[in-house]
Design a protein around this nucleic acid. Structure first.
Lengths: 192, 192
DNA sequence: TTGGTCAAATTGACAGTGTCAATATTGGAA
DNA sequence: TTCCAATATTGACACTGTCAATTTGACCAA
């Protein structure tokens, strides 16, 4: 944890500049040079912290995963007694994050643009998958489907819905029958 | 349907060159100049058929949607008697297309890179959504959720699963309890 | 203090990109 | 035939990622 020589904490400054660009103009606008410009350094300065654009985007995605993880934990999910409450809080926060920071959410899953072999990145997705597995397991063994498939179904439905919502599909956001928010109604469709 | 002056059918040739690049190297490689090069014309020739890169990618996505639509219809889905068979055939083809042509599938839903106001493109997604709605409606009114939410759930789970699969998640592809392919087990989890 | 060392940042260059304006080519209509 | 309009070419500009060579500056050992 040593101070950088010229700038001070360039890596952090680069991430923040990149987040601004990402939120405002999408991942296409997150170029090494634009980020460097926004951080007030020369166009090749970032190379010391991120060897290429892929590494920069990977670092950015990791930052976002930690942000989401923290947001989920902030809901007090760990203190909730039953799995249904936990799952609803989890989905709620996922849905919130995706719609409030669509470009960040999209980037997090753009595996074609990220470094798939990055251990830190993989640990983040594994952690989320583990949370879902743990919660779903508490509902017990389903009658006509394996627990694993139910976990996969839950991950798919959450992720798919958020992505489709980000892209502007599905105008009605409330379940017409129960009055619940749509994203809550979706997971109820998968639970006993 | 007039012959083009110099080339003959440049638009079609551009689409096919672009498909090659897309399949081989991803959407990042689909540049106007690379496509023009592959089609054997000058770097600015495509502008007559696609005013900018966004238009090129939109044309490409429309082509892919039609390809998928045709693949679904080729399964004989219209002749199937019950909604469950139809839905399984539909999901099967979606899953196939996504895994066989991952870059095409991804592009089709990259609304941030496409022209969202393109009527032809919107008609394609509306058509797919309409197919799901029609099939789900045949299952009747669910007990604790609206038909619309079940439709949204079905779209989300299919799309989410295919995307996650494309990105290499979920190694086991068979439901451990029923022995069904995982993507079939997923939709069974949503049906009565 | 001095000198050395090495990470960090700068500068300059190269090939590639999207996009525009100006120009050339050509098929078919008048 | 002449002319037009669609089509394609050429050349230019600013931008990008990436590399090599260079300079800067903080820290440590003598």
């Amino acid at each position: 944890m040593k101070k950088a020589h010229h700038h001070g904490a360039l890596k952090q400054a680069l991430i923040e500049a990149a987040l601004d660009l990402l939120d405002a103009e999408g991942v296409e606008a997150v170029s090494i040079r634009a980020v460097a410009r926004k951080a007030g350094v020369s166009h090749a300065a970032p190379v010391n912290h991120f060897p290429d654009r892929r590494a920069l985007l990977t670092g950015l995605a990791i930052h976002c995963f930690e942000e989401l993880k923290h947001a989920i934990q902030s809901t007090g999910i760990r203190e909730m007694p039953d799995a249904r409450s936990q799952l609803i809080a989890f989905v709620d926060e996922f849905h919130n994050y995706g719609l409030n920071k669509p470009n960040r959410y999209r980037l997090m899953w753009r595996s074609d643009m990220l470094d798939a072999s990055d251990e830190e990145l993989n640990a983040m997705t594994d952690h989320l998958f583990g949370m879902v597995t743990k919660m779903i397991t508490q509902f017990g063994d389903p009658p006509n489907i394996s627990i694993m498939s139910r976990v996969v179904a839950m991950c798919s439905i959450i992720h798919g819905y958020v992505l489709l919502r980000i892209d502007g599909n599905f105008i009605g956001l409330t379940d017409e029958k129960t009055g619940h928010p749509r994203h809550i109604a979706l997971i109820e469709a998968l639970l006993p």
